[in-house]
Amino acid sequence: MALSPLQETPAEPIAAPQGRTVMTKIFVTGLKIDAEIGVYAHEKGRAQPLVVDVELDVPAVGVERLADTVNYEMIGEHARAIAAEGHIQLVEAFAERLARACLSDPRVMRARVRVEKPLALAPHAMAAGVEITVVRG
């Protein structure tokens, strides 16, 4: 994956004292993305709002520079790029693509992605959606 101008050259993970690995949780909540998504005829050819929450586990301790960790701005970049690729049938597919895009950074050990589709069951529910967790194997 090419580094964006917001990213510095990745550094090696820093080991915690006594050989323990410290996991840092990087997160973005309430990210609003417009995407062409859905399986029904009325959902084709038009964008709908999605609300995305992402949580990443990254081994990091003693972080002093951006290069020592994962820049959370890349989560929004990945989400917007996936939406720009065109129509997606299911929120599950969007969530999995986003999780795997986040795992493209080798420092990310786990990605949890929650995607809400606020208009899916309106006005009967605030949102419907999915949550997926992908762990580096």
Rank of each mutant, 00 (worst) to 15 (best):
M1E: 07
M1S: 06
M1A: 10
A2Y: 13
L3M: 01
L3Q: 08
L3R: 06
L3K: 07
S4F: 05
S4Y: 04
L6F: 07
L6G: 06
Q7E: 10
T9Q: 08
P10V: 02
P10S: 02
A11Y: 08
E12F: 09
A15W: 03
A15M: 11
A16V: 13
A16I: 12
P17L: 12
Q18E: 15
R20P: 05
R20N: 09
T21D: 13
V22N: 13
V22D: 14
T24G: 07
K25S: 15
K25I: 13
F27S: 15
L31A: 06
L31H: 07
K32M: 11
I33E: 00
D34C: 07
A35V: 05
E36C: 11
E36M: 06
V39R: 01
H42N: 14
H42Y: 09
E43Y: 09
A47C: 15
L50I: 05
L50P: 00
V52I: 06
V52N: 01
V54G: 08
V58Q: 00
P59Y: 03
R65C: 04
R65K: 14
L66S: 06
L66F: 02
D68A: 03
T69Y: 00
V70H: 13
N71L: 00
E73T: 15
I75H: 03
I75F: 04
G76E: 14
G76Y: 12
G76R: 09
E77V: 09
A79S: 04
A81K: 12
A81H: 07
E85H: 13
E85Q: 10
H87G: 04
I88W: 02
I88S: 03
V91W: 01
E92K: 00
F94A: 04
A95M: 01
L98T: 05
A99I: 09
A99E: 00
A99H: 02
R100D: 11
R100E: 09
R100G: 06
A101L: 03
C102P: 02
L103T: 01
P106K: 09
R107W: 10
M109A: 08
A111I: 12
R112W: 12
V113D: 08
V113R: 14
R114P: 01
A122S: 10
P123A: 10
A125I: 03
A127K: 11
G129V: 00
E131P: 01
E131D: 01
T133W: 00
V135D: 04
V135A: 05
R136S: 15
R136W: 03
R136V: 10
